[in-house]
Nucleic acid binder design. Structure first.
Lengths: 138, 138
DNA sequence: AACAAATTGCAACAATGTTGCAATTTAAAA
DNA sequence: TTTTAAATTGCAACATTGTTGCAATTTGTT
């Protein structure tokens, strides 16, 4: 695991630091998406809040994670698939928010349906977020 | 306009007050969705922030407005179609965020595509947010 | 080991959201 | 129209979330 985490950081030209390693591990060990708050709690109060913000920002820019829109006022982050590169994300999957357990997960195998927009609109990204009950809570 | 606004409030068993009337008018006069901050600015510093929060909350609960998930950390609100009733929304349309003008609008005529979920998942709501360039900014 | 560059933590701040309570306003009664 | 109870507002105080500058530390490299 450590190997993989370090490799990802290096591949993205990010120096390997305690916080980056730890936060990236949290994503690997987590089933679903994480909010800033989740990370703050799970990291065991070891890192400054500012560091977490900056780390998430760096991961986003490098395409290591992507964010998930929610209707509540919390931004969620999740690991990107391998082929995400800086500035060009391929998160062509649907996100699912379970109203029971509260988890948000990436449905990697459910691809984004095509949306036909009115004349004149140009689409650059489509986010689909489904909420309901996940298979574990049913 | 005032007539319509008052009617909507009464129909939803909300007493007619200055702030509710004003905020509802803002939604009618606005092209797209509004954030709490937008309303605070547009209302001309007439209402307390707390009142705006509580008014939006009331409108949400009554189904007068719905909220739109975004990947940034701002919650957007927009008017619901007429047939939204308390606790049961029919916002079966796609939301579009323009990266040029920043406006978020409801594409009333673009309906939500169906999403086929893996076995065991139950869908209760599907949100689709498309970002790109709107027809006015093209 | 030594150095430059990057990263972190701290402090201070700004923005956003919440709660309790007294004062005001609304809606409906007399 | 006046009165009255209930609902709503505004204030104050607070909690949470996010941002910025800068000195101290750590990283990657020579």
């Amino acid at each position: 695991m450590d190997e993989a985490v370090e490799h990802i950081l290096k591949r993205n030209l990010l120096s390997v630091t305690d916080s980056r390693r730890k936060i990236l591990e949290l994503f690997f060990n987590s089933q679903g998406a994480l909010s800033h708050g989740d990370i703050e709690k799970k990291a065991g109060e070891k890192f400054d809040r500012v560091t977490i913000y900056r780390t998430l920002q760096a991961f986003l820019e490098k395409g290591i994670i992507h964010n998930i829109p929610t209707a509540e006022n919390s931004v969620l982050y999740a690991l990107c698939k391998d082929d995400c590169t800086e500035g060009h994300h391929h998160d062509n999957h649907v996100h699912f928010i379970c109203n029971e357990c509260g988890n948000t997960i990436c449905l990697e195998n459910v691809s984004i349906p095509s949306v036909k927009l009115p004349k004149g609109f140009i689409s650059s990204q489509v986010d689909v977020v489904v909420s309901g009950v996940c298979k574990d809570c049913k």
